[in-house]
């Protein structure tokens, strides 16, 4: 009942958000100084006035912005995101391809940062203000105030250049035809960027988890559990983890947006051809259809993360799951 309501409510929200994103990015992109015709024919190539006229007519550049938006919107609704000017391929195909490499990168780092952050947070919280807590906390502070591209470069220098454990860049081995690339090779190329990426969010998760755990440890129900002679291990297992789970899950899914944002930088540093790098390319080279497509897809992606967080929250929290008397 409740869960269905939440899904419904969030879907409505998502649709309105997407419309807003579409309009906003359309306005931004059409008012940018980049000449779409020039970027279509590539930089530096001379075009005669007639040719220019023809192309502009063909793309509908003389229509009013509202008409153009209508056209674009209609096509999007039919699943046609247009053609990428850089790749000369349908935008959906380009995004699909790039997304695949990005998703490997992002999911590895999402899992690493989630698990690492949670475990460290629990350790810090349970042993609040002990030496181990201070030690881990300082590390977290240092990491969260270090730019992730710098960490990425350090990793590259140490692990790829000096030690040679990992490849220097790209998502696949160079000079191997795409049919012969195995999943483990892709994984191998994704590890270093993924670790870099997870550095941008695990310390946040750890510090948030720590705050939640210290709050739990001070609660009356933990006091009572102690008074009943439950061992520390048992208290953590029976009460602490249970109560930390809901905020942790929410945090974890909310961190998707952070990971997504961070992936743009990480992909740049490692020349990893994923969605982030493609977005940068599309922006710099005026590939308007691709840029708009990526904007839409990434909003959907981030928003889905939030929806899942909300749904899990409802499923996990008995107050929402069973309590009809709590409406909001």
């Amino acid at each position: 009942m409740n869960v269905i309501k939440i899904i419904f409510k969030n879907s409505i929200r998502m649709i309105t958000l997407l419309i807003a994103v579409a309009i906003a990015s359309f306005i931004l992109v059409t008012s940018s100084p980049i000449d779409p015709v020039q970027s279509y024919v590539r930089e530096g190539v001379a075009v005669s006035a007639e040719q220019r006229e023809e192309i502009a007519n063909y793309w509908g550049l003389y229509n009013s912005p509202i008409e153009r938006f209508e056209n674009w919107g209609k096509n999007i609704l039919n699943g046609d995101m247009g053609t990428s000017l850089i790749y000369r391929k349908p935008v959906s195909e380009v995004i699909g391809e790039k997304f695949q490499s990005s998703i490997i990168l992002m999911s590895i780092s999402w899992i690493i940062s989630g698990i690492l952050g949670f475990v460290l947070g629990v350790i810090m919280g349970v042993f609040e203000s002990s030496k181990i807590d201070k030690f881990i906390r300082n590390i977290c502070f240092i990491i969260s105030s270090t730019p992730s591209f710098w960490i990425g470069m350090m990793f590259l220098i140490i692990f790829s250049v000096k030690l040679g454990w990992f490849p220097i860049g790209f998502s696949v081995p160079i000079g191997v035809s795409s049919d012969n690339i195995t999943f483990s090779q892709k994984l191998y190329h994704a590890i270093l960027p993924a670790i870099t990426l997870s550095f941008s969010s695990f310390s946040n998760i750890a510090l948030h988890t720590r705050a939640k755990i210290t709050e739990i440890m001070k609660s009356n129900y933990i006091l009572f559990a102690k008074a009943r002679g439950e061992s520390l291990f048992n208290i953590i297992k029976r009460h602490v983890l249970r109560n930390a789970l809901i905020p942790a899950v929410t945090l974890q899914f909310a961190s998707i947006s952070e990971i997504f944002g961070g992936s743009i930088l990480a992909e740049q540093v490692f020349s990893y051809p994923g969605l982030g790098q493609t977005a940068v390319d599309a922006g710099l080279r005026g590939d308007i259809p691709l840029l708009l497509g990526i904007a839409l897809i990434s909003s959907i992606f981030v928003f889905l993360g939030n929806i899942i967080a909300n749904i899990l929250y409802a499923v996990l929290d008995p107050k929402i799951r069973e309590g009809a008397k709590y409406s909001e």
Binding site: S219, G229, R242, I246, D317, K319
Partner: peptide
């Protein structure tokens, strides 16, 4: 070693119960 076994407390309010159990 003794609490919960030889010496027991009945606490004051509902907040001493784990809200998620």
């Amino acid at each position: 070693n003794l609490r919960g076994k030889e010496i027991c407390i009945i606490p004051q309010s509902v907040s001493y119960l784990d809200p998620l159990m």
